[in-house]
Design a protein around this nucleic acid. Structure first.
Lengths: 338, 338
DNA sequence: CTGTTAGCGCGTTCAA
DNA sequence: TTGAACGCGCTAACAG
C-alpha cells in the first residue's frame, strides 16, 4: 500500500534512489557497486549514497541475480542436521566464503528423499555451486550440472573431493591398541553404505591382518545408541575381543552399555574406541579414545576448492589427516605384561 | 557432460521449450504452472510437458522470483548448527513447508556477528519470511521488516512466538524429585542470557520455594561438559544438595563427572536431571532423567504460524508442553524412608 | 562525467 | 484456444 506525500511503506527501487538523488539509475548502480572511481564525481556519488541510506534502499536480489546470472551463494548439502559434525563443517566453509563475498546456505537433504517430493522446495539453482558432505555424488540428483565439490565422500565420483584420511586414522587406532598389547579386535561397523565406512572397514581389516596373531570379528549396527548396544552385546557374547573399534562415537556409547551389561569394565576388561570426536567423546565415562576429524578444516578446504572451481580452475582432490585422541577408554588387555 | 546431437548443454529456457513444442512461451508458462484447464488443448499441453521433460527444462528461479515478487522460501535462522536440537526443528518445519510448496533454507547466525560483517553473505530478502529459533528478536537486525515467527524465544518481543512450556517442565522435574523425597536442590544454570534459561530458573526457584523445607543453591556454567564439571564440583563442595537440576543435558554430563570425581554415586548419592533430551541423555550412564522438548513440533507449529502470517493472518503465540522422561539418574535420597 | 538503452527469463495481461 | 507484447529491478554496453 502506497501512501502519497508522507512516508512510503513500499520498498524503494534503484529508480527511487536515482530520482531522490537527481541522477540516473545507472549512476546509482555504479556508485553502489563500488566501482565508480573516475566515472562519477565524488559529489554526486555522495549524494547517491545519502539518498540510498535515507530511503533505506537495498537492492532486489532476484533482479540482481537475474541480471548477473550468479548469486554469490553456495549451498551446503548435508544428510542431516542432527549431528554436530556438520556445524563445524559449516563454520569452516562459511569463514572462507565470507572472505570472498560469498554466502552459504544449508540444505539438509536426507537420503532417500527423491527430488520429486517437492518441485520447488529446493533452492534449485538460485546458487552458484554446491558443497555436498557425506553423501554419494549420485544422490545429488537435482543439482547435477551445478559445480560441486564433494566432502567426506567417495573420491571415485568424478567431482573434486576433500576427504578425511580415515584409513590413516584406523591404522593409528590399531597401532595404539597393538602397542598396548591387543591382538583380538572387534569391529562395530556402521551399517551405512557410505564411502567413509567402507574405507574404515577395509583399513581396519588390513591393519589387523598385518599384525602377527591379529584376529578380527565384525558386526554391523545402525548409528544410534540402543542399536549399537544390542549389536555390541551379541558380538561380545560370541567372540571375546579385548578391544572394540567402533565406526562412530555414538556406537561406542552403545558399546559401553553393552560391556557394563555383561559385567565387563572399560577399559580394564575391554578397550573401546570411537571415531569422529564429537561432543559425545568427552561426555562419556571413561572418556573415549577416538580419532578427531578436522571437520572445520574440511569445510574450509572444500569451500576453497569450490571457489577455485567456480573461477574456472580444476582443484585437486585432497585428504585431511585425523588425529588420534588417546583417552581413558583404552588400556592394556587384562593379564598383559606391562 | 551431456552429449546430445553435438549441441552444447546450455540450460534451456521456457522459450526453448516453446520452440520445441511448437507453441508460444505463454502457453508453456500456463501449462507448467498447472492452470491451463480450459485454456489450452490437452494435446498441446501434453506436447509442452513432453518437450519440457525431454529438454530437462527447469524454470529460472531468479526470473520467477523477480516476476512473482515472492520466493516461496523461508529462512530458518538458528544460533548454531552444533546442536542436534535444531535438526529436529528443521525437520518439523520442513514437513509443513513442503506440504504448502515452500522451501526452507537454514541460516546459522551466531550471536555477536554483526550484519556489517558480510554485505551479501546473508540471503537478505531472497526469502518470504523468517523462522528464528532460540534468539532475541532484536538480534534479527538485518531481517527486520520481514514477516517473522520466533521459536523458543522471549514472547515479549512483539512477533508471534512458539515456545516450550519450560516452566511446566521444571515443575514436573521438581515434582518428580520431591515425590522421591528430595528437599535440598542444586541448580546448575546455563550462563546464557536467553529467555528459556531465565524462565527455567524462575520456575525452579518458585517450585522449590513452594515446597515445605525446600532449599535451593545455584551456580552458573557455560553449556559444555568441562565447564559444567568444574561448576558442579564447586557447587557440590559447598552445599550438599541431594538433587542437581541442570539446564541442559550437556551440563548434566559434566555433573556426572564431578559427582564421580567426588566419590558420589548417581543416583545413589546424588540425583541428576537434564533438560532437552537430545542424544546425550540416553548415551550417558545411568541414563538421564530429563524433560523431552518436542523440537519437531516446535518447528511444525512455527511454520504453520508463519504461513498464516504470510497469508495475512495474525497467528496466536502458543506454548508446547514438554514431557518428563524419568530414567535412571534419579532415585530417593540416601537414607530416605521408602 | 553522466544519461539512454537493451535485455536477463519469466508470468500475465490483451488481441486475435 | 493461442500468440504478441509488456514489465518486474537491475547492470552493462554505448552515446552524449
Amino acid at each position: 500500500m502506497r501512501h502519497r506525500g508522507g512516508s512510503v511503506s513500499i520498498r524503494p527501487t534503484s529508480r527511487d534512489v536515482a530520482q531522490a538523488a537527481g541522477v540516473s539509475q545507472s549512476t546509482v548502480s555504479l556508485v553502489l557497486a563500488g566501482k565508480w572511481t573516475g566515472r562519477v564525481s565524488p559529489a554526486t556519488a555522495e549524494a547517491v549514497r545519502a539518498a540510498a541510506e535515507q530511503l533505506g534502499y537495498r537492492p532486489n536480489l532476484a533482479a540482481r541475480n537475474l541480471r548477473l546470472g550468479s548469486t554469490r551463494t553456495v549451498l551446503l548439502v548435508v544428510p542431516t542436521l542432527s549431528s554436530p559434525f556438520f556445524g563445524a563443517v559449516y563454520t569452516g566453509a562459511a569463514r572462507v566464503a565470507a572472505a570472498h563475498g560469498f554466502g552459504i546456505v544449508v540444505y539438509p537433504w536426507p537420503d532417500g528423499v527423491g527430488p520429486a517430493d517437492s518441485p520447488f522446495a529446493a533452492p534449485h539453482d538460485a546458487i552458484d555451486g554446491v558443497l555436498a558432505s557425506s553423501m554419494a555424488v549420485e544422490s545429488l540428483g537435482e543439482f547435477a550440472g551445478t559445480p560441486a565439490v564433494m566432502l567426506d565422500s567417495d573420491p571415485a565420483g568424478g567431482a573434486p573431493t576433500v576427504n578425511f584420511d580415515v584409513a590413516g586414522g584406523m591404522r593409528a587406532l590399531v597401532g595404539h591398541l597393538a602397542g598396548l598389547g591387543h591382538r583380538r579386535f572387534g569391529h562395530l561397523a556402521a551399517a551405512v553404505d557410505e564411502w567413509t565406512f567402507r574405507d574404515r572397514g577395509a583399513a581396519l581389516a588390513e591393519a589387523v591382518a598385518a599384525l602377527p596373531d591379529g584376529r578380527l570379528v565384525r558386526a554391523e549396527t545402525a548409528i544410534d545408541v540402543p542399536a549399537a548396544r544390542v549389536a555390541a552385546r551379541d558380538l561380545l557374547a560370541g567372540a571375546r575381543p579385548t578391544a572394540l573399534l567402533c565406526d562412530d562415537d555414538q556406537i561406542a556409547a552403545g558399546a559401553y552399555k553393552a560391556a557394563r551389561g555383561l559385567g565387563l569394565e572399560v577399559p580394564g576388561d575391554l578397550s573401546v574406541t570411537g571415531f569422529d570426536d564429537v561432543l559425545l567423546a568427552e561426555a562419556l565415562e571413561p572418556e573415549l579414545t577416538t580419532v578427531r576429524l578436522p571437520a572445520e578444516a574440511l569445510g574450509a578446504h572444500g569451500m576453497t576448492a569450490l571457489l577455485d572451481l567456480l573461477g574456472g580452475g580444476r582443484p585437486r582432490s585432497r585428504s585431511l589427516a585425523g588425529e588420534l585422541m588417546a583417552r581413558g577408554s583404552t588400556a592394556p588387555p587384562a593379564g598383559a605384561a606391562p
